[in-house]
Write a protein that binds this DNA or RNA. Structure first.
Length: 555
RNA sequence: GCCUCUGUAGCUCAGUGGAUAGAGCGCUUCCCUCCGGAGGAAGAAGUCGCAGGUUCAAAUCCUGUCAGAGGCACCA
């Protein structure tokens, strides 16, 4: 008896009842209207529905009367132990222990697949995040998106979507030249050029570039600049990929901006040239003051944006357009962008691009804006010069701790990381609370095996302690939580859910023994509880996996 | 000036219209022979920034207002 089964039963009995009260009304009723939720208060039963209150007005009756009528019929459904009507018209359902306990068996059987759902089946989604410039290491601002984006990708996939994760590399334009000049200057022991890149890492890159080809110091500078730039870029990009790997963040595609600028030898045209033509053909482009503009104000922007400057050179916006079209051409119907709050000014422009490309901005593009992250109250920005690099954070607090902390808050919450707290292996650090609960399930399983408790018997009606029904009810919700996290693009819901499961598990552990005390015999109740123990471990592990966090067997 | 986000317990924060608003930390008092006191129970702690509105029902939706953070290039 899953909530889905129960809501289906409720829907089925509702149809004739509604039809009887007002002919034709049943047609307006959809199964998605019939929602069952876990009441916060356990005294309100295992599942609760507000359907009577929502339908009463339409049917010209009062909620309590309607609820009573529904409750009478629901009580005879298989697996339902009792139904009450409470408050203004809530219908509270209690399941019998056997029906509620069945989920433990299901979870153990489905193992790694438990939690997977098909709520986003058929969706083809491009997920772009991080996209840090290849002119320096990843730092704090990228870190939040690396954690959230990677987890979001996992949650979307678990919900049946086809997902491509992508990192866009801004490797064209004069920032790269400044980067090359900075590395070159450092190689000659000179100070950072005007508007160049400062930082120790530039000196390190310079040393490595020179080590690879010492002749760079002897040839004319204007001749070697391109080589400095290119070699340093490759080294830096490799560093970035290493950092991401240590952070357990995976990208399917690293897309370079350069490919958008390259001319096709056959046609002499670049992807950006083509993109400009295609936007013109869609009718959202106009010329003024010698420049070519996109009418982004059609899509909510406060002013129109230049795509081709008066001097004939493309703006960055033109490359964005070509990149968007590339995603579209590669078959992605939905494009999700994760951007920092400092880029929220781009939202209208990106939406305008989508519209100008003939797509529907409300359907084909979604821009998620994340608020700023600080560490120990200090704002860390490139401008202020006190960058905290991802690698430093990883070394300081560890990948699991950092990923979990970044993934457990909604992205629109400004976040201040407490470095010392994240280093703690205690309850103050939520990741350990969850990981410890998982380790405990594994430890119980190991000890159970030694004590001769196995899973040869499963009698769900024996799982009747209040901590067991609470735990079972929560375990049942996992697929729905995953689906909701995917639908709302909010992976933090998974983390919060896992914390709830961990708490419920610890409470159960304190009340119900899997392994009999002392010399007492192993009974079916112990064997059955082992199923529940293992099911909990499975949910914790699967959930942590969605967050990119390890689930250790012992700690 | 305009735009986006935020305002919930002493602190850090959950809570996409439901019942008595929750968790962790911190504080008080207890308990635990299933890893190693990284565990559990109970208690104290709140005008959900403020004011209107919509609704059977608002922390949640709408409007206004106050406070804080960030952003508003023919830069990349």
């Amino acid at each position: 008896m899953t909530p889905a089964d129960l809501s289906r039963s409720l829907f089925d009995l509702l149809v004739p009842l509604v039809e009887g009260r007002r002919p034709g009304a049943a047609a307006e009723l959809s199964p998605t209207d019939v929602v069952l939720e876990r009441p916060k208060n356990r005294e309100h039963g295992d599942w609760s529905s507000n359907i009577a209150m929502r339908l009463a007005k339409k049917l010209g009756t009062n909620p309590r009367e309607l609820a009573t009528e529904i409750a009478e019929r629901l009580a005879s459904v298989d697996g339902v132990q009792g139904v009450d009507v409470a408050g203004p018209g809530f219908i509270n359902v209690r399941l019998d222990a056997a029906a509620a306990g069945q989920i433990a068996h299901t979870i153990v059987e489905r193992a790694h697949d438990y939690g997977r759902n098909e709520s986003l089946a058929g969706h083809v989604i491009n997920l772009e995040f991080v996209s840090g410039n290849p002119t320096g290491p990843l730092h704090l601002a990228h870190t939040r998106w690396a954690a959230v984006g990677d987890s979001l990708g996992r949650v979307l996939r678990a919900s049946g979507a086809e997902v491509g994760t992508e990192y866009y590399i801004n490797d064209a334009g004069n920032q790269m030249d400044k980067f090359g000049l900075s590395v070159q200057a450092a190689a000659f022991g000179e100070p950072t050029p005007d508007k160049g890149y400062p930082g120790e890492y530039i000196g390190e890159l310079a040393a490595r570039v020179v080590a690879a080809d010492p002749s760079l110091l002897e040839r004319p500078r204007d001749e070697t600049l391109a080589e400095f730039r290119e070699r340093a870029y490759q080294l830096q990009m490799a560093e970035i990929k290493d950092s991401l790997q240590r952070f357990n963040v995976h990208f399917d595609v690293f897309f370079t901006e350069q490919t958008l600028h390259e001319k096709d030898p056959a046609t002499g045209r670049s992807a950006i040239d083509d993109a400009a033509e295609r936007l013109k053909a869609q009718g959202h482009v106009f010329e003024d003051d010698d420049a070519v503009w996109v009418r982004t104000t059609d899509f909510g922007d406060d002013k129109d944006r230049v795509m081709i400057r008066g001097n004939g050179i493309y703006t960055y916006f033109a490359a964005d357009a070509a990149y968007y079209l590339s995603k579209k051409d590669r078959g992605y119907t939905e494009k999700i962008y994760l951007l920092g709050a400092d880029h929220h000014g781009y939202v209208h422009r990106l939406r305008a691009l989508s519209g100008a490309a003939g797509d529907d901005p409300d359907v084909n593009i979604q821009v998620l804006i994340g608020q700023m992250v600080t560490v120990n109250g200090a704002k860390l920005s490139k401008r202020a010069g006190n960058i905290v690099e991802l690698d430093d954070l990883l070394e300081w607090v560890g990948a699991d701790s950092l990923r979990y902390e970044l993934a457990r808050y909604p992205s629109d919450t400004p976040l201040d990381l407490d470095g010392e707290q994240l280093r703690k292996r205690s309850n103050e650090n939520p990741v350990f609370y969850v990981q410890y609960a998982h380790a405990r399930t594994r430890s119980v399983a190991r000890n159970a095996a030694e004590a001769g408790v196995d899973r040869s018997v499963f009698r769900p009606e024996m799982l009747e302690h209040e901590t067991e029904s609470a735990l079972l009810g929560a375990l049942q919700e996992f697929p729905r939580i995953v689906a909701q996290a995917a639908e709302l693009r909010e992976p933090h819901r998974v983390a919060r859910y896992l914390e709830e499961i961990a708490g419920l598990y610890h409470r159960w552990y304190d009340n119900c023994r899997v392994i009999p005390l002392g010399e007492q015999p192993v009974k079916d109740v112990h064997r059955t509880r082992l199923w529940l123990n293992d099911a909990t471990g499975t949910v914790l592990r699967n959930g942590l996996d969605l967050l990119g966090v390890t689930a250790p067997d012992r700690m």
